[in-house]
């Protein structure tokens, strides 16, 4: 058995070498493989964003401009009629996109900042800090978040700032849980241990070793949390304790015009009016969910 294998060079070894692609190539490949539902989702989200950004340009009237006729029927002047105190419904819908989405987005960002940051620290630290934070989050999560939010809003009052803060803090518990659990899986990897053995500080380990490897589930979660926050804010506004008038908001628009539904037999358009903002909410969350669903399927590697 003196014979050596013919020629052996480490550089010539072939493993599961994947073809390297540029960002642009990968992006276009990704887009090509997107199913219709994801396409639908992306188009809807893009439209909403455009409407939110250019609300001032698109809206026919001012956000809080009051016209003489309340509950005006659909017409050329007021495409979707006017509301209970005579504001143009279409205008309110357009501004509502900006307000509701903006507040939900700010809340979600804040909640990821708090929950994600603490979750990462807890996952690396794994000692009393992790124990303390985890138990605290368990307790917070034992109170249903809508109920908790209602309670806190009754104390702090329904301003936009307190709305954002309260919901962000409550929602960050879920972000904390997810971040911690995925980060713990990464934190036990040998490359994290290798970095610690090298003497790297907490900052490096968090930013360079762990964060890049937990991005996909966090991105997906961002979409889901955004939907959840968005629905919570809409529900609170609907209940009258969320975004307060005169700020245009979809949740409170539904409530304000709900009584029109009973006239469905006489004027179908009137009955649809309160459903428009509700449909706007539903359409956006469905769209985001479609995108997230596709993204999760892409990244989870689950074939079945």
């Amino acid at each position: 058995m003196s014979e050596q294998p013919e020629t052996y060079a480490a550089a010539a070894e072939v493993g599961a070498v994947r073809k390297r692609r540029t960002r642009l190539e990968r992006f276009s490949l990704l887009m090509k493989s997107a199913p219709p539902s994801a396409w639908f989702g992306m188009i809807v989200v893009a439209l909403y964003i455009l409407v939110a950004i250019f609300a001032d340009v698109i809206a026919p009237y001012g956000e809080a401009e009051i016209h003489p006729v309340p509950f005006a029927p659909w017409s050329d002047e007021f495409i979707f009629g006017t509301d209970q105190i005579g504001r143009d419904v279409l205008t309110r819908l357009i501004y509502g996109a900006r307000n509701t989405m903006g507040i939900a987005l700010a809340t979600t960002f804040l909640s990821f900042l708090i929950g994600g940051g603490l979750g990462l620290v807890a996952a690396i630290n794994r000692s009393w800090l992790d124990q303390g934070l985890s138990r605290f989050v368990d307790v917070l999560m034992a109170i249903p978040s809508l109920i908790f939010a209602l309670m806190l809003l009754s104390i702090f009052g329904s301003t936009i700032t307190s709305l954002i803060l309260i919901i962000a803090v409550l929602d960050s518990t879920r972000v904390f849980r997810l971040t911690r659990s995925v980060a713990v899986n990464v934190a036990v990897m040998d490359y994290v241990e290798a970095a610690r053995l090298r003497g790297e500080g907490l900052g490096w380990v968090m930013r360079r070793e762990i964060l890049p490897n937990i991005m996909p589930p966090l991105v997906a979660e961002f979409g889901l949390r955004f939907c959840f926050v968005f629905l919570t804010i809409a529900a609170l506004s609907f209940l009258g304790v969320g975004i307060q008038p005169p700020t245009a908001d979809w949740g409170s628009m539904v409530r304000a015009n709900a009584s029109l539904i009973q006239f469905a037999k006489y004027d179908m358009t009137a009955a649809i009016t309160p459903l428009l903002p509700a449909a706007a909410i539903a359409l956006l969350t469905v769209a985001v969910n479609f995108i997230v669903d596709w993204f999760l399927q892409k990244t989870s590697g689950l074939r079945e």
């Binding site: 609907f238 539904v254 909410i281 469905v286 985001v288």
Partner: peptide, 16 residues
Amino acid sequence: LTTISTPEFFVAYILI
């Protein structure tokens, strides 16, 4: 997926 993305009040008013 569509149903869970929909606010409860939307479902409620459609039923109404």
